[in-house]
Amino acid sequence: MVIEDWGASLKRRAVSFLPLVSGVALVLVTATPLYFGHVGDVAPRFGVTAVIFWTIYRPDLFGYASAFFLGIVADLMTGLPLGITALVLVMVRYGVFTRRRYFLRKSFHIVWAEYALVVIAAVVIDWMLAALYLWSYPGLLVHVFQVLLTVALFPGVYWLLARCQDLVSVAGREAAGSG
């Protein structure tokens, strides 16, 4: 019985890292951008998607530290100045967390529309940071495509993250039941 409890607790602890691990996996997938003719290569902002999803549904397992770490991984992987994506994701986490109750009460379509607004805000912050860092006006076309791609792929990514959330919930219930 004690061993069963210990096993369930260990499983719950391991699964509690799933939000961060799923976020890192999504960031790694975007290492190779999709090619769009004259626009060039565009990578969706799945890091933002992960932060939004987990902040709405499991903020207890995805705090500011997780958002920061995810941003650092993205920066290290893409060769961006370290801290840029981390700053954007921490700000996204703050923005979504303050409106969490609103998100929770809404249907998927409304969440999708609100998600689009958050992605636009994140990309605008990113663009402003780029302008300050480089002291020039970077082109906007890639950003527009980035927003469109990230928003268009949201249902698929949402489905994947929802399956991860199911795993987290089941592990939590098992641990509570055995305790």
């Binding site: 290492a31 190779t32 951008p33 060039g40 290569d41 565009v42 990578a43 992987m77 893409t78 060769g79 961006l80 100045p81 840029i84 990113d126 663009w127 780029a130 860092y133 480089l134 970077p138 082109g139 890639v142 950003h143």
Partner: peptide, 10 residues
């Protein structure tokens, strides 16, 4: 080539 950065920074 296993990865690209496609943002505005680099």
């Amino acid at each position: 080539i296993i990865g690209h950065s496609s943002g505005t920074f680099v």
